[in-house]
Deep mutational scan, measured.
Amino acid sequence: LVRYRTISKIPQITLNFVDLKGDPFLASPTSDREIIAPKIKERTHNVTEKVTQVLSLGADVLPEYKLQAPRIHRWTILHYSPFKAVWDWLILLLVIYTAVFTPYSAAFLLKETEEGPPATECGYACQPLAVVDLIVDIMFIVDILINFRTTYVNANEEVVSHPGRIAVHYFKGWFLIDMVAAIPFDLLIFGSGSEELIGLLKTARLLRLVRVARKLDRYSEYGAAVLFLLMCTFALIAHWLACIWYAIGNMEQPHMDSRIGWLHNLGDQIGKPYNSSGLGGPSIKDKYVTALYFTFSSLTSVGFGNVSPNTNSEKIFSICVMLIGSLMYASIFGNVSAIIQRLYSGTARYHTQMLRVREFIRFHQIPNPLRQRLEEYFQHAWSYTNGIDMNAVLKGFPECLQADICLHLNRSLLQHCKPFRGATKGCLRALAMKFKTTHAPPGDTLVHAGDLLTALYFISRGSIEILRGDVVVAILGKNDIFGEPLNLYARPGKSNGDVRALTYCDLHKIHR
């Protein structure tokens, strides 16, 4: 019993810090008490220290592992850092350059016999395009090294910054494609005289377009951006097909006994025919423009016929181009109408809503002055909100995010209106959640004399007048207030005048 009563005193000691020596009952000389009392004092002292730490809000209350900052290894790049964003855009520009100039170089340097010394005699450094290609190869190699040090988000939505895990993730992902696209074939085969082989191998750079397509997928929600990307894709495919079309004609031209190829026909049409040795002929500019003209006309199913396939190889390629053109029509131009419709969806919704308003007016036989006010209010409210119901949009977000959005939407009023000066951010967040926005066209009466005042109004834009009878008592403008002081009276009061809008007004109100 003594032991039980001794232990039962522990909660009292913990909360009230009572010393055991003052209790005459606990001072009985028993061996059990002498053993338990020192333990009680020690526990009391420890609990006292913990309570003191909690009340003082000291940093040592938290466990040590929670006080440590997340460790980022040296030379690790955050995937959302500004440097990584700028670097990704730079790589994107280099990939676009590669997609345009690599097929052009591979096709127009394929057994090209233009006048001038061969590239091997001039030297590697004197070729501007080769120098640019070398810079692109170096940048792609540097990009691989950067990807080995860039964080990523795993399946659990955690940012991984450990170098080993980053390397394994990159090896399992895009490393092989990036490595093949970054191989400097110019340096590996330079001086061997195989410019045709170098041009063909350099087309491996186009593998990076797969990554670019995935990154550009984030802009699919913007109709104008999608339309622009589709047109660029169409032009890029036409450019690639033009390079292939020229390569076919250029390879067949020296081996044909009869002059029936499209390059021969082009030379005869523009007065620059090929001679018996295969030299001469149109310039590279004429060849490229004509090839691009043929691919565009074939892809769009126009086909004027002034550039036509004559050999079997050219006919087979033309059939493939027609098939590609039909697929592009289905996948690209078939979506253009939907994209344009999405661009004008706001206008369509406006006309639909206006039609419903006019049908309501016609069905209920609203008189002319009231009908005009109804239409003007709808037009003004639509121009202010673009038909978007803010309350319906915010309803799907958590309250903390709703408060931040409301604070942002009402920031101008909260910053410049005098009653809100000096208020804490928590108070402003709470008030912003209570605001209701209303609009009024010129001549609209917001409050009639004798109406119950259940709200306090803040003028965000425009001006109003307060009338008693036919006498203008006051004219209020931006950041002015009218209405009933909230919670100042037990019952809502009545208006002693009319409140009429002089201009288009936007008002925020808080109800009782």
Rank of each mutant, 00 (worst) to 15 (best):
I340P: 01
E114Y: 12
I260Q: 04
N306I: 01
L236T: 01
F185G: 06
G249L: 01
I146V: 05
L201A: 05
A392D: 13
F140D: 01
Y288M: 01
T120W: 01
A291M: 01
L92I: 05
F304V: 04
S258P: 05
Y344K: 03
R259C: 05
M328F: 09
I248K: 01
G325W: 01
R342T: 09
S298L: 12
M256H: 12
I135Y: 01
K425E: 15
P442T: 03
Q415S: 10
N156E: 12
L401S: 01
F190S: 13
V212C: 06
N312F: 01
T424R: 08
G303W: 01
C232N: 01
G271M: 03
G426Q: 04
I146Q: 01
L299W: 01
I332Q: 03
Y97L: 01
Y350Q: 07
V393Q: 03
N250Y: 13
M139A: 11
I91Y: 01
Y246T: 01
T102K: 05
H169C: 04
G193Y: 13
M231S: 01
I366W: 01
L92H: 03
N391M: 09
D217V: 09
Q372I: 06
V447N: 03
V307I: 15
T311K: 01
I284G: 01
L401K: 01
V289S: 01
L374N: 01
R218W: 05
R429D: 01
S308H: 03
S308C: 04
L370H: 01
E376I: 14
R342E: 08
A130T: 05
G267I: 01
V289G: 01
L401H: 03
L413N: 01
P70M: 06
A430I: 07
I284H: 01
R205V: 03
A107V: 04
H416G: 11
G278R: 03
A224R: 03
F175A: 06
L236K: 01
I248W: 01
R208A: 06
L206W: 01
E195K: 08
E121R: 14
T300F: 04
A348I: 06
I340G: 02
Q402N: 01
F101H: 04
W174Q: 04
Q341F: 04
R165S: 08
E375L: 11
I361K: 01
K418F: 05
R342N: 04
V131G: 01
V393T: 05
Q365T: 04
A182W: 01
Q253A: 14
A238L: 01
A381R: 15
G193C: 05
V210A: 09
T120P: 15
P128E: 03
R421P: 03
R429L: 03
K434T: 03
A204C: 06
C406M: 08
P441T: 08
G223F: 04
T311H: 01
Q372L: 09
Y80F: 06
L229R: 01
L370Y: 01
N368S: 08
